[in-house]
Design a binder for these strands. Structure first.
Length: 423
DNA sequence: TCTGGGGTCCTAGGACCC
DNA sequence: TCTGGGGTCCTAGGACCC
């Protein structure tokens, strides 16, 4: 059996955990640039807001209902996620952290549990007490069914946070009632295709013959079909190193100023370099994409990407920034109002054991690697932008995203740690 | 005025090999 | 009239996930 533990409206729950007076109120967390709603409480849903709504289009709903807004604070959310995951890890022999707010627990060690439903309810209560984050848990013989269960647990308070799909009759009942579009692995594009083939519910799908599934769909759908029928077919191993690393941000304003675009792009390249070194890898290829705003039909559009091999795989910020700037200068065309750029690294290999190259144009690579170490150490200790390259600085107001509703870094910055007063 | 960001896997088709 | 067979590697695009 597997358990899927899902944090309810995770980003909102983290913010509320530090401001208990917001519990039961409409709260939203916004995307970069405070552009869209990316997470919302059920109270916010109830007043007519949806995930993905552009804030400027729902401004009146927000004001009328006194909805509290937060700019996304990923540092805070990942720190809280680690706390939740460490509590979950104590309750199972194996945990697969599937995303920032979800984890699969392997419950196959039956000697460990007295009564799985009761034990999982105790686990949910413990996470809530220790972190303030409410979770929903689904338990089933396959991961797809466990995800379904957690959804039922979230929607119906009667389950008290835990829904068990542990018998044939419960499985059939769940398949009949669950929304096909919400099945793990079935997305927007597939629902109409299934409907045209006469499949309206997960139960319809599960009852189709194996040959039918293989004929109409690919191996992913076949795996989902197996899982719905109670046969485990999808694994969620600990993810290895990333195969691609990218950073992209919308600018705070449209701009046709190459210097502004260069500054933003240099920062995105530096951010990619940080992520690359954090997983101890080197990149063999770099790409840059430049974009105007596709929402502005009144303006001419230019969206283009260029990429090139790096002569030696590297994780050196200077080299990556230099290459990114070369590419963005080639992409830039005067007369267009640009909205964002994206820097992408690929052909990623482990840094350990990489052979020196006889034709490497950089002669002092060991010294430069040491410099990168210092850079990372200083920035870890004193904050992300404490030490940076000159080319990354200036023009802040013209490109860096707006975050007008930021919450403090309660868990990662000693100066912003919450203070409790007791009398 | 304003519209997010970061990933993975699979498949079809082209280029190339013998 | 009629034009092999079998394989690999790469890329672009699509679909999915959070």
């Amino acid at each position: 059996m597997y358990a899927l533990v899902d944090c309810n409206s995770f980003f909102c729950s983290v913010e509320i955990s530090f401001r208990p007076w917001l519990r039961g109120k409409p709260v939203c967390v916004l995307s970069n640039n405070d552009g869209c709603i990316v997470a919302l409480t059920k109270e916010a849903k109830a007043v007519g807001l949806h995930r993905g709504d552009p804030v400027h289009q729902v401004r009146d709903i927000i004001e009328r209902n006194d909805v509290t807004l937060f700019s996304g604070n990923m540092m805070l959310y990942s720190a809280m996620s680690k706390r939740v995951m460490s509590i979950l890890a104590r309750a199972a022999t194996r945990i697969d952290v599937y995303s920032i707010d979800e984890a699969f627990l392997d419950l196959s060690d039956s000697g460990r549990y007295r009564d799985i439903a009761a034990d999982m309810r105790a686990l949910a209560a413990q996470v809530l007490q220790w972190t303030g984050i409410p979770v929903s848990i689904g338990v089933a013989p396959t991961r797809t069914l466990a995800k379904m269960g957690s959804r039922f647990a979230k929607e119906y308070p009667g389950y008290h946070s835990v829904c068990m799909i542990d018998s044939e009759s419960r499985r059939l009942k769940a398949l009949e009632l669950f929304d096909l579009a919400d099945v793990w692995g079935i997305g927007r594009r597939t629902v109409p295709k299934l409907a045209a083939l006469g499949v309206k519910t997960p139960l319809d799908l599960a009852r189709k013959p194996e040959e039918w599934v293989k004929r109409h769909f690919n191996v992913n759908m076949y795996r989902t079909w197996l899982e719905l029928n109670g046969q485990s077919a999808i694994d969620t191993m600990e993810k290895a190193e990333k195969q691609t690393i990218s950073t992209s941000r919308s600018f705070s304003h449209l701009t046709d100023d190459l210097e502004v675009i260069e500054t933003g792009t240099a920062n995105f390249a530096a951010s990619c370099a940080n992520k690359l070194r954090a997983q101890n890898s080197l990149a063999g290829r770099i790409g840059v994409c430049i974009m105007t705003s596709t929402f502005r039909e009144d303006l001419p559009q230019h969206i283009e990407m260029l990429d090139m091999p790096l002569c030696i795989p590297t994780a050196d910020t200077t080299e990556l920034v230099h290459a990114a700037l070369q590419l963005v200068r080639r992409l830039y065309r005067p007369g267009y109002k640009y909205k964002k750029t994206c820097v992408m690294l690929s052909d990623i290999i482990p840094a350990a054991g990489f052979q020196q190259d006889l034709f490497d144009p950089v002669s002092n690579r060991p010294e430069r690697a040491a410099l990168m170490h210092v850079l990372d150490d200083v920035n870890t200790r004193y904050g992300l932008h404490s030490l940076q390259f000159a080319v990354q600085t200036g023009h802040e107001a013209e490109w860096r995203s707006k975050h007008l509703h930021n919450s403090p870094d309660y868990l990662t910055n000693i100066n912003e740690i919450p203070v409790a007063n007791a009398r």
